[in-house]
Design a protein around this nucleic acid. Structure first.
Length: 846
DNA sequence: CGCTATTCATTTTTT
DNA sequence: ATGAATAGCG
């Protein structure tokens, strides 16, 4: 991410450039009176209550430019904080465009709270070491997965099972505690039950785990940033002098720590402009404190308040409906958006029989809309991620390309995380989570027992696992086999580490893949997944190369990887986007579908018991509805199955649906005798029939295309991977798409029982010889058992064999060749068994 | 120890 | 339906 505007300590912190524009560029033209007033605001606190679609980004960017050009403020004195990296990037672009090509102007710093803190700590974090023993500026950032890994380790160490509390749940309690400035000691003191005490212990050990690894979780980034500024007067002084003008976007979603950070930064000047909308506060569950915005005028006496209530986005119908819904909330300042736009079309409400029909309705309507208007953009919003699956499937049936936001982002993929774990371990030998992740990937013969011994030694000597490997091997603490395996691992890491300082990041990654055996492991795996993983690693290297070309270090590359979020990958120019309502914040689309508007799903059942949480769900509804510019569809099902399996449960329409005035709705349900709908139903029936015949279960993960796109969106060029997998049959790429599927689902050969299908199966006999030949070039990484006897060579499907334990059996199916062949054998009295030729001592009888 | 077939639980929302 | 944790085999 852009690191512009960052000045080292010691350089002169000038706020005023003394620069005056040669011509008075008017950044205020085209703004309405309120927007203009806000953009013109110079010093002192200001709260901008900006309703949905009221042009707040415009106001912020214009204010920045106005400060720079009309007020002569140095760009470097301005800090604007946004909610996502994407929002920050867009704001930077807009400011750059507004300021024109005048490169003499210093760029303002626009970033998220989290990336701001990372930079703060990386640059000036030394003063934190006394407060956080073991801390250095080389700290690692632990994401969600890493946090869970730490916690699981803690559980194991304390002998706690997940029945006590699921790690995710424990993490969320710990996180809430941390955000309220609570320590494990506070937890102990407040503990009223043995369980609570145990949780305090878990919390304590979790924190120890982070400290031992010199790692910070997301909460720590902010907390330690605050601690640093609070504790070290010189640093605080420097930063608050440097950033003389602060702006915070999405202020309603800031938490306590972010608030404190802002206070510290504003301590010198109180030039704070915050922009927010209490009706769009949807992150209370993650610690966002709505009081921050409700109490701003109290916190900053003399603050001005400007309301932006004219909406430039939606039709009057959409606005009135959303307003009517949110009006049912009590905790709000109250405002009513107005627009000069016309009423537009009524809100389409569809009641489906079940989830499948709902999905088909959505897909079909999208298909029709896009046929009529191919350049349009449609978003399907839902409450929970799992809802995307059905809708994806329906869209595939209609041959519509779509892009799913969330779920698996590139940096969360196992192979990418593995490769980065190697890097992390090279950079920081104390990173136990990284070490455990890759210790036996690829398989090196380090198993559960060895890991336990390692952990034991590390705990006894208060050393990291890495040191435990070194010391334990040197002192022959482990068994011969374990020592050999651990020694091999140690040598690999040490050799890789030697090159680290002198080599470019992508070179390090390449060597990791080549020399750790990871690449060989994947190449030895004939599955398409392995091929795609290799492709992803190529992409990762390309991304690292580009980061290096921009002058980023390996550490910065890792930071970037840790801080990208799902919301950053939204592509508003895709024809069809599928995303959660949360991820839709700040976006707009001409056409929006809101799916699954049912009690229990939306509002979510977990929110049903508290009025506060219900209001948050209602705000979420408001956010979702106000994403739409022209058309809004809302759908729900009468029956929905909770899990893939059994019975569909009856669902009642959401209370939010009832809060929409009926005169703004148009009922589209199939049950109505609407000729248009009858036509829909017929077609739906047909599609269903066809779909039944080709049960297509395509991948629902992001495709390779997506990953190129992912980087392309960040301005990172990707060279097409040389060894790229041939595009999967059912997937095609289109510019701007992820998880793209082509119009014609590739029919798969139906697996049937018995030997007949073995002959049909594509990966069989004829081709397999050629395949195993090509894979033989890359031998499998694991050592083969010496006892392997060539027995499988002559076994064919249809052969009768004899097994020492199961007796006589008939070979039904054979996958692969030679010793690696997997055999499906039917033994009388023992049923079907899957055996590997190498291990099963089979004798051929005929 | 590694692989696989099985069971089992799993669905809020995420910087 | 899917993925993650576990039991049993070689």
């Amino acid at each position: 991410m852009g690191y512009g505007g960052w000045v080292r300590r010691g350089e002169k912190p000038a706020w005023y450039t003394g620069f005056f524009p040669p011509r008075d560029m008017d950044f205020l033209a085209g703004l309405n009176p309120q927007q203009r007033e806000a953009a013109e605001h110079f010093e002192g606190p200001l709260l901008i209550l900006a309703g949905a679609g009221s042009g707040k980004t415009r106001v912020i960017t214009h204010r920045i430019c106005h400060l720079i050009q009309a007020r002569g403020v140095a760009g470097g004195a301005i800090l604007a904080v946004t909610f996502t990296n994407k929002a920050a990037g867009e704001m930077r672009d807009r400011v750059t465009r507004l300021l024109g090509s005048d490169s003499s102007l210093e760029a303002p710093l626009i970033s998220t709270f989290h990336s701001f803190c990372v930079r703060l700590l990386r640059r000036d974090g030394d003063a934190l070491t006394p407060l956080r023993p073991g801390f250095t500026r080389n700290f690692q950032i632990y994401d969600d997965d890493d946090q869970t890994a730490v916690l699981k380790r803690v559980y194991k160490q304390l002998g706690i099972t997940e029945e006590f509390l699921k790690p995710r749940a424990a993490l969320s309690i710990i996180s809430r505690g941390k955000n309220h400035a609570q320590t494990p000691q506070d937890f102990y003191e407040q503990a009223a039950s043995p369980q609570a005490e145990r949780l305090a212990k878990v919390f304590e050990e979790y924190e120890n785990g982070l400290r031992e690894a010199n790692a910070l979780d997301f909460d720590d980034l902010l907390l330690e940033g605050v601690r640093l500024l609070g504790h070290d007067a010189a640093t605080r002084e420097w930063y608050s002098r440097r950033y003389r003008f602060l702006m915070v976007d999405e202020y309603q979603d800031t938490n306590r720590t972010q608030y404190e950070l802002m206070r510290l930064l504003a301590s010198k000047h109180s030039n704070v402009v915050v922009v927010g909308d209490e009706d769009q506060s949807i992150y209370g569950w993650r610690g966002a404190d709505i009081r921050n915005i409700l109490d701003f005028e109290k916190d900053f006496p003399g603050a001005r308040v400007i309301r932006l209530e004219q909406n430039y986005r939606s039709t009057k119908t959409i606005l009135d409906a959303a307003g009517a819904v949110v009006a049912n909330n009590i905790a709000r300042k109250g405002k009513w958006l107005w627009t000069e736009a016309g009423a537009g079309t009524p809100i389409g409400v569809f009641e489906a029989d079940d989830g499948e029909q709902e999905a088909l309705f959505i897909a079909e309507t999208i298909d029709k809309l896009l046929r009529a208007e191919p350049a349009s953009h449609v978003a399907v919003l839902y409450r929970t991620n799992f809802q995307s699956r059905q809708i994806e499937e329906a869209l595939r049936r209609y041959g519509r390309k779509y892009k799913v936001v969330g779920g698996f982002s590139f940096y969360q993929r196992a192979e990418v995380k593995d490769a980065l774990a190697y890097v992390k371990l090279l950079v920081n030998g104390r990173d136990n989570v990284a070490l455990l992740r890759i210790l036996n990937v690829p398989a090196r013969g380090v198993g559960k027992t060895s890991v336990e011994q390692l952990e034991k030694l590390a705990r006894e000597r208060h050393i990291s696992l890495w040191e435990a490997i070194a010391q334990g091997c040197d002192e022959h603490k482990y068994g011969a086999r374990a020592e050999a395996a651990l020694g091999a691992f140690r040598r690999v890491i040490e050799r890789l580490r030697e090159g680290l300082p002198s080599q470019a990041p992508h070179e390090t990654l390449r060597r990791i893949v080549d020399e750790s055996g990871y690449g060989a492991m994947l190449r030895a795996d004939p599955s398409p997944e392995a091929e795609s993983k290799l492709g992803n690693l190529q992409e990762l290297m390309a991304a690292a190369a580009d980061a290096a070309a921009r002058g980023e270090s390996m550490e910065e590359f890792l930071d970037h990887a840790a801080l990208v979020s799902d919301a950053d990958q939204v592509d508003e120019t895709a024809p069809v986007s599928l995303l959660t309502m949360h991820n839709a914040k700040g976006l707009e689309f001409p056409v929006v579908f809101i799916a699954g508007v049912e009690e229990g799903l939306f509002p979510h059942s977990r929110s049903r018991d508290s009025e506060e949480q219900l209001e948050e769900e209602r705000r979420l509804c408001y956010v979702a509805m106000t994403r739409a510019r022209q058309r809004l569809y809302v759908s729900h099902a009468r029956y929905r199955r909770r899990y893939g399996g059994s019975p569909p449960e009856p669902c009642t329409p959401s209370r939010f649906l009832k809060e929409i005035p009926t005169h703004l709705m148009e009922i589209l349900s199939a049950r109505r005798a609407d000729p248009y709908q009858v036509e829909l139903s017929d077609e739906q029936q047909m599609v269903r029939e066809v779909a039944r015949r080709n049960t297509y279960t395509g991948k629902t993960y992001n495709s390779l295309d997506h990953i190129s796109q992912f980087f392309a969106e960040r301005g990172i060029q990707i060279n097409p991977p040389r060894a790229a997998a041939p595009a999967r049959a059912a997937e095609t790429s289109y510019p701007g798409g992820a998880r793209v599927s082509g119009p014609v689902p590739q029919p798969r050969v139906e697996p049937a029982a018995g030997p007949a299908k073995a002959a049909n199966s594509p990966v069989k006999h004829g081709e397999s010889a050629a395949q195993s030949a090509s894979f033989a070039v890359h031998p499998a990484a694991g050592p083969k058992p010496a006892a392997a006897v060539k027995r499988g060579g002559t076994i064919r499907a249809g052969a009768t064999v004899s097994h020492p334990k199961y007796g006589q059996g008939l070979v039904l199916r054979k996958e692969g060749e030679g010793e690696d062949a997997k055999l499906t054998v039917s033994f009388s009295g023992h049923g079907l068994k899957k055996l590997v030729a190498r291990y099963a001592s089979l004798k051929v009888l005929d």
